[in-house]
Design a protein around this nucleic acid. Structure first.
Lengths: 340, 340
DNA sequence: TTGTACGCGTTATCAT
DNA sequence: ATGATAACGCGTACAA
């Protein structure tokens, strides 16, 4: 691949002049400049970013680590970040941690070696994270997304999960529900879920009810109806459940319907996150919507500000309740499990 | 950030020796080696990949461009690619084209400047693509994913979309359907959809039926029931439709149910792609499953082979029929539209 | 306005 | 076994 020197030679100027023609065009006489551009075109010259990066000590790359792209929440956030970053001339180096702390460390180390200008991470648990401990000692600007800001020492972009959990619960309470449960994936892997649960507890207590224990599923993205059935039978049977993420909610609804129950008649189901698909399925998923596009954009802009040396601590982004057919008024229609 | 020279000085050796201690440990006396390692640790030395890349003329990065990460098909493929690439010591530079040809060009240009070792692209239409025309003149190894291999001149990883379309149709035919339609997003933006449609036509003709015209929706991911209603009424009303992707199918099912119809009693609905969510919704989506993990892995491995200079033209990957509750036998139950 | 020369951090060649 | 040095491609301070 042609380099600046060959361009310069073909244009009959020095390397410096050729370089200037690109980086500082006004410093070079128009005719000379054109000669350089012509030569560049003839040789199909393409500036070498690696060299530029080494020279300028900046890569214009930001490293992104999310748990998994199989969850649309992260994929959609990444989509927004990519657009925002590109608009600012930055590229994204993307990795997935698969919720594994050791992978998290390897990935961040790798990205630091690549000299990314900044990092955007979503870690399993911001409260106790080896990778964050390491990053505290580094100077590379770093930002969390989705992780609750408290206790990590890092600025974090996302909604107020506690408040969101409260709002979700209040919505159900307002409809007349009181026997409300909450379902989560593996808790250790999600500090968000914990906060949302605490918000739920807050709302329940506030309304004079006793919060129920969190029901923990084995996977993030797939509900297991059996784990929930104890809560669905008897006098105290739930009339509504909140899932800590939309995938869980959608698969729970599927399981219920597959077993012959209907949503929301037998059980109201709420999700969390607001992935796009939730609007299209039937019944449409009632959920707490995170402003994913905003989150992505804000994350990029906040990080770039940090990179420029500015100090900024953005406020939590507003969540919104998205109503949906998966939630209704509580009914007395009894569950009859095991009829299949 | 500490560099090799400072490490060397602290260890009391030359830069060359320090470098060797890492790249070629056996060439340096064990005691010296340890001194170097100690110094490196003390200074928190972290090798600079940018410099390595400039020096070695290889970035160990592969550039990935997909239309949009909002579609789980691409997100899930990317997930698989990331794991495969990381396992081989490669990183992923990820971009989204948003189905825009001009963005496609900008992105590829940018990645070439970054000197990625190879490219993995999913373009709108491999048959006529400005970006592919440009890449034909370049030497950077390049691979398509999902795009049909024919007519592009590039090797492409994916299933045989024609055959898959045929298989989908045959499945419905075998159940007794004959009035089968096909629904797609914007056709110009998806050569895959065209191939799948031609496969459908093939199967219909083969069975002695007349293929229907493709119904084109305005968006890739959201069905518009109104566009379809003409096909759902009258003597010749459809009993089954195949959608060219799962998101379209899922939203179509939602729309139908929302209007009071049931799937598959009133209309059988098939999807295409096999995104994970399809299994969990109710009715579970019957679809043609693409081996996304395989596709991702194979793409990376094929590209790396190309980068190493090997020649390899992988065969199309096998698709699979995933049965689901969204498809049933044809019934005589009439559609009654507009009853709401 | 243009050219000379140095440095960014690394690796590889050639001496010693 | 180790050290000196050139080169990767670029940007820029300084000199002309």
């Amino acid at each position: 691949m042609a380099d600046l020197l060959s361009v310069a030679k073909l244009a009959g100027v020095s390397r410096a002049t050729a370089a200037r023609a690109f980086s500082n065009p006004d410093l070079v006489r128009p005719t000379t400049r054109e000669r350089v551009f012509d030569a560049a075109k003839q040789l199909a010259f393409r500036p070498n970013k690696v060299a530029q990066q080494l020279r300028s000590q900046a890569t214009q790359m930001i490293g992104v680590m999310v748990p998994s792209l199989d969850n649309p929440v992260f994929a959609e956030q990444l989509q927004a970040m990519e657009v925002a970053a590109r608009a600012c001339g930055y590229s994204l180096l993307v990795t997935t941690s698969e919720y594994s702390p050791s992978r998290e460390s390897d990935i961040v180390e790798e990205m630091l070696r690549q000299r990314v200008d900044g990092l955007v991470l979503t870690v399993a648990d911001a409260g106790s994270s080896a990778v964050l401990d390491k990053l505290r000692l580094e100077t590379t600007p770093c930002l969390l997304v989705y992780n609750p800001p408290a206790n990590s020492g890092f600025t974090s972009i996302g909604v107020d999960n506690h408040a969101a959990g409260t709002d979700a619960t209040r919505h159900l309470l307002a409809l007349g529900h009181s026997r409300i449960g909450m379902v989560a994936g593996p808790l250790l892997q999600s500090d968000r879920a914990k906060q949302r649960y605490s918000g739920y507890c807050h709302a329940m207590i506030e309304a004079g009810f006793t919060p129920r224990p969190l029901v923990e599923m084995e996977r993030h993205t797939q509900a297991d109806l059996n784990s929930l059935t104890p809560e669905l039978t008897g006098e105290d049977a739930l009339t509504a459940v909140i899932c800590t993420n939309d995938l869980l909610a959608i698969s729970l609804m599927g399981e219920l319907q597959r077993e012959g129950f209907s949503v929301p008649e037998n059980l109201s189901v709420m999700g969390f996150d607001g992935i796009a698909l939730g609007k299209h399925i039937y019944p449409a998923l009632c959920t707490i919507e995170q402003p994913r596009a905003d989150i992505g954009r804000t994350a990029v802009q906040t990080l770039l500000a940090k990179i420029r040396g500015e100090i900024c601590t953005p406020a939590p982004l507003p969540h919104a309740l998205r109503k949906g057919e998966s939630v209704g008024m509580p009914t007395t229609r009894k569950f009859k499990l095991g009829t299949s």
